[in-house]
Amino acid sequence: MSFAHEQVLPVAGGFGSLLPGGGLRRGSVVHLGGAVGSAALVAPLLAAATAVGEWAAVALLDDTFGALAAAEADVALERCAVVRRVPAERWATVVGALLEGFTVVSAVVPPHVRLGDARRLVARARERRAVLIAWRGAWPAEAALRIEAGASRWHGLERGDGLLAGRELTVVVENKGVSRTARLEMPLGTSLGSIVVAPVEAITTAPVTPAALAG
């Protein structure tokens, strides 16, 4: 037996406020997609694990993990393992092994993952009370939460002048069939923990509500 708040790894800042319960529910699978922008969202999710002394792992098909950006987002790099160049044919085995030992496993999904493998990983995550973040690729199995990084707007850069400063990232969070679109303001700060603390400008609920129909 454990309390509800013990089953959620709290995610800091405005991004956390978009997630049900304010964070990652242990034992669940989160799909995190988007052409560009998902790395800015995966870092606070990894930090949610390392902030409470647990371990996080990142599994990549290549070797492009921006660890410096993760460090800026308050990820404790000494408790964040990186597994790189995972071959697609051994991906499910590797991710399964990582779920045995890590609280949050963020794995880039290779193309053509078999449904059976994906389901097994969902079951493994539930059994080990770990969080599997199926990152970037298409996830054939069920996911408790689907997060999509949308377009980014950048501040501070002009033609030949200025510096990259802040960023506005559109995020769509789909939870139990209800999707919310929000714009995350990420001003440049000393740490991404403060960057993500930002007002959520617009929240729209995708399914039409009875109230909207009445109006």
Binding site: F65, L77, E78, C80, A81, V82, V83, A97, E100
Partner: peptide, 27 residues
């Protein structure tokens, strides 16, 4: 115990993928 668990899992993955593909980053 969390460190031990992570250590065992990483040891196993190192066995699958090779010593150099598994590790941590340092700034």
């Amino acid at each position: 115990a969390a460190t031990d668990r992570a250590d065992r899992a990483l040891g196993r993955v190192q066995g699958m993928l090779g010593f150099d593909q598994v590790g941590t980053c340092v700034v």
